[in-house]
Simulated assay, not measured.
Amino acid sequence: MSAYAEITYEVEDRIATVTLNRPEARNGYTIRMADELGDAMDRADRDEDVRVVILTGNGKDFSVGADLTQGGFDFDPETGPDAAWQEPAGRCSKRIFTMNKPVIAALRGAAVGGGVTITLSCDYRLASTDSRFGFVFVRRGIYPEGASAWFLPRLVGMGTALDWMISGRVFGAEEAKTAGLVHSVHEPEEVLGKARELAREIAATTSPVSVAVTRQLLYRMASAESPFPVHELDSRLIGGLGSSPDAVEGVVSFLQKRPPEFSMRVDTDQPAYLPWLNK
Rank of each mutant, 00 (worst) to 15 (best):
Y124I: 08
V103H: 06
S121F: 02
P102H: 03
R26C: 07
D61N: 12
G72C: 08
F151T: 03
E175W: 07
G109W: 06
L181M: 02
N58K: 14
P208N: 08
C92H: 07
S93E: 07
G114D: 06
P260K: 09
H183V: 02
E12V: 07
S235F: 07
A40F: 05
E6A: 10
A84W: 00
G180S: 10
I7F: 08
D35E: 10
S128H: 02
D45N: 13
L198K: 13
V251S: 13
P229R: 02
T98R: 14
G38D: 11
F171L: 08
V211N: 11
V136S: 13
I31L: 11
A106F: 05
D76P: 01
V64G: 11
S93H: 02
R236S: 01
R196Y: 12
N58P: 04
Y124S: 09
T8S: 14
R215V: 06
L255F: 15
P275M: 05
P88Y: 13
E12P: 03
G250F: 05
F137Q: 14
L126P: 01
K101G: 03
V53D: 07
F262R: 00
L274C: 09
F254K: 09
V182S: 01
K94M: 00
S128L: 05
H183W: 04
G57N: 11
I202K: 08
R215S: 08
L181S: 09
D45S: 11
I15D: 04
K279T: 08
E190K: 15
A111W: 01
A147Y: 14
Y273K: 02
A44F: 02
G141Q: 03
D163P: 03
S131T: 14
A89M: 14
K101N: 09
D13V: 11
L241T: 10
A222L: 13
G172R: 01
S148F: 00
T30Q: 09
G28H: 07
V103E: 06
E48L: 08
E48A: 13
E174M: 04
F137V: 02
R139M: 12
L37M: 04
G157L: 06
G193P: 07
T98E: 14
T214P: 00
F171V: 05
Y29K: 10
H183A: 11
E232H: 12
M1R: 00
L37V: 12
L192E: 12
E190R: 15
V138D: 04
V116M: 00
G115V: 02
R169V: 08
V116Y: 05
I104W: 07
D47G: 04
N58S: 15
R220N: 15
E197C: 03
L255Y: 15
A3C: 10
V64L: 13
P245Y: 06
D163Q: 12
A247P: 05
R154C: 05
R139D: 11
S226G: 09
M158S: 12
K60F: 14
R91C: 10
P260T: 12
P188I: 08
G90R: 01
M221E: 11
G159V: 00
A16F: 01
V230H: 03
I166A: 14
I238G: 07
R125G: 13
I54G: 06
S121V: 04
E48Y: 10
G38V: 10
E78D: 15
R91V: 12
R14V: 07
G242V: 07
G172P: 03
A147N: 12
P23R: 04
K94S: 10
L255E: 13
E12Q: 13
A84N: 00
P23G: 11
Y124T: 08
